[in-house]
Design a protein around this nucleic acid. Structure first.
Length: 571
RNA sequence: CGGGACGUGGCUCAGUCUGGUAGAGCACUGCGUUCGGGACGCAGGGGCCCCCGGUUCAAAUCCGGGCGUCCCGACCA
């Protein structure tokens, strides 16, 4: 492609409404433009990147035996009512009516439609295993779209769904996808980590997330170098020590703690360490109050609590409810005398004496021994794992990192097939619900994630496999031998199947250098008078800045070799 | 949905407090010089100052109401 013939509107200045690097650089490099909040146009250069990501995903899904289909973005309400999600999905589901006043939605995901396909087309155990996937536009009416393409309302997703006869077969299908995903992210040229994850509202037995590692990532993850354990912070287990329960000390005593609400204030006032204090938090789980306790220096993991309770919704109780449940104001809650269920983080059982709220304004209790004083307390893993925690598998040291979720695989079990009546007949003629799995990849998000991971002060550094062009040629001059040689190289590379962009604009060299860096093309070939006099062209690697001089006659072949070895694609 | 900020040529922003002819840099067009890291000179084009209403002789500027965008939080593959 000739630069002068395409549309790559680069910007010198950073647009004011872009906060994170990937968003800024995608705008500056002319990959995307915003149409509305969370809704973007993909310009030629950006769309090439998107298509290259898509190609790799498609190739690996195909070779894993999945079958590509295309499902509609507009879906009738009835389907969503049959799964129960029309009422439960919430406002993220964009609903509207057609001219006949029939209700529809823009699909945020496709379990309903694909289960409907399975229900209609799968009759026998002989029809499985089956895996159907699509690469298609999703719409989620996010409360707050942000970070450009990273959390957009409309985005491109690869979603796959597996259908199996039983859990064992479903586990095998899950493994196949796990491997396919690993190959996909390796081929994309991204540093990533596979972590255990909470399966969330979609349900199912367990799941893994594929995280692109980047300091700016929205998710925190932990991993163990020793045994390979890795998990989302939301999910990571905090193991209890196996030491026996400590002997109780003297009975509890009430102390006045005027004005001390927070753990820090109470610790300071009483001259104890925060870990000797227990926080008691009052939650509403599906509207029912419960108490949950963690050590003062710990953070409660709401997802763990929610899962323990089997609750669909969990939120901190408002002050009025706290007053009603505990008899005291916010900030002085404790477990004694509560009639609601009390859940305690198992770590607390090791404490011989705890400071807790007295359920009375400006008062706390000291010397609380959980087993003695709150025998009905139910121990569980309720807290967020912390840097001083050991690996829950091998006891080794944990590393903390940040990541961007780009893939998520779930086992769905029979949630949708049962709700929607998708069944098959086994060899004995018995009817069973189909066992499903679902597997998502945020295709457009990968583009942003790749940029979060690969950039420097000068712009984007694309991995070769997804770079919009593998090679860019910069003729430092607009005519004469420089341009002739540059065009010759351009033709040679093109004929050999290399995606190449030649900057044939009549501009000063500096502008071309800046744009080439900004746009992030991995291999840059500079054709200038200096080099040509020695029969050479200069090759610069975008990633590490390495420069080498290549003899003119061999340049094309060398480049082809590099592109092929680096997994470069031709669109 | 709670809190905050912002809306002025394509982009980045000044001007708003204290009402009085709409500005700068970049980008764009033409000419000339320049040409290995975002050149320079000259000459140009381009604005419903987010929208609606109000106050005023006069509103980008003051007042009221909308709309939009971004950030933090809550929420979310």
């Amino acid at each position: 492609m000739k630069f002068s013939r395409t549309l790559i509107p680069t910007l010198k200045e950073t647009p004011a409404d872009a906060e994170i690097v990937s968003h800024q650089l995608m705008l500056r490099a002319g990959l995307i433009r915003k149409l509305a909040s969370g809704i973007y146009n993909w310009l030629p250069l950006g769309y090439r990147v998107l298509r290259k990501v898509e190609n790799i995903v498609r190739q690996e899904m195909d070779s894993a035996g999945a079958l590509e289909i295309l499902m509609p973005a507009v879906q009738p309400a009835e389907l969503w009512q049959s799964s129960g999600r029309w009422d439960h999905y919430g406002k993220e589901l964009l609903r509207f009516a057609d001219r006949h006043d029939n209700a529809y939605c823009l699909a945020p995901t496709h379990e309903e439609v694909v289960t409907d396909i399975a229900k209609r087309e799968i009759r026998s155990y002989r029809d499985m295993p089956l895996n159907l996937y699509q690469i298609q536009t999703k719409f989620r009416d996010e409360i707050r779209p942000r970070f450009g393409i990273m959390r957009a309302r409309e985005f491109l997703m690869k979603d796959a769904y597996s259908f199996d006869v039983d859990d064992q077969a479903a586990a095998a299908s899950y493994q196949v996808m796990h491997q396919a995903y690993t190959r996909i992210f390796e081929r994309l040229g991204l540093r990533f980590s596979v972590v255990e994850a909470d399966s969330g509202a979609i349900g199912g037995s367990f799941s893994h997330e594929f995280m692109v590692l980047a300091d700016t990532g929205e998710d925190a993850i932990v991993s163990c170098g020793g045994c390979g354990y890795a998990a989302n912070l939301e999910k990571a287990e905090a193991v209890a020590s196996h030491a026996g329960a400590p002997e109780p000390g003297p009975a509890t005593a009430e102390v006045a703690t005027p004005g001390a609400h927070t753990v820090e204030e109470v610790a300071e006032f009483l001259g104890v360490a925060p870990h000797q204090i227990a926080k008691t938090l009052i939650y509403l789980a599906d509207g029912q109050p419960v108490a949950a306790m963690v050590r003062g220096d710990r953070e409660l993991n709401e997802i763990k609590l929610k899962n323990q309770l089997g609750a669909a919704e969990l939120q901190l109780a408002p002050p009025a409810v706290i007053q009603e449940v505990t008899g005291g104001p916010l900030g002085f809650s404790g477990p004694l005398g509560l009639e609601v269920p009390v859940w305690v983080d198992h770590e607390l059982l090791q404490a011989p004496a705890l400071v807790v709220g007295a359920n009375k304004a400006d008062h706390h209790l000291t010397g609380l021994h959980l087993q003695r004083d709150v025998p009905q307390a139910r121990p569980a893993d309720l807290r967020v794992i912390a840097p001083d925690d050991a690996c829950p598998r091998c006891g080794g040291e944990l590393e903390f990192a940040r990541g961007i979720e780009v893939g998520h695989i779930f086992r769905l079990g029979t949630k949708y097939s049962t709700a929607m009546g998708a069944e098959y007949l086994d060899a004995e003629g018995q009817s069973h619900p189909i066992v499903m799995g679902c597997y998502g990849i945020g295709v457009s998000r990968i583009v942003a994630a790749a940029i979060e991971q690969g950039h420097d002060d000068n712009g984007i550094i694309f991995p070769l496999p997804i770079a919009p062009y593998s090679v860019t040629i910069l003729p430092l001059g607009h005519q004469g031998p420089v341009m002739e040689k540059a065009l010759e190289l351009y033709r040679q590379l093109g004929q050999k199947g290399v995606d190449v962009l030649i900057d044939d604009r009549d501009l000063r060299p500096g502008v071309k250098f800046k744009d080439a860096d900004l746009v992030g093309i991995p291999l840059r070939l500079v054709v200038g008078n200096k080099g040509l006099k020695q029969g050479q062209v200069e090759l610069k690697h975008r990633a590490d800045g390495r420069v080498e001089m290549l003899p003119l006659e061999q340049a094309a072949d060398s480049l082809v070799e590099m592109v092929n070895q680096g997994g470069g694609q031709t669109l």
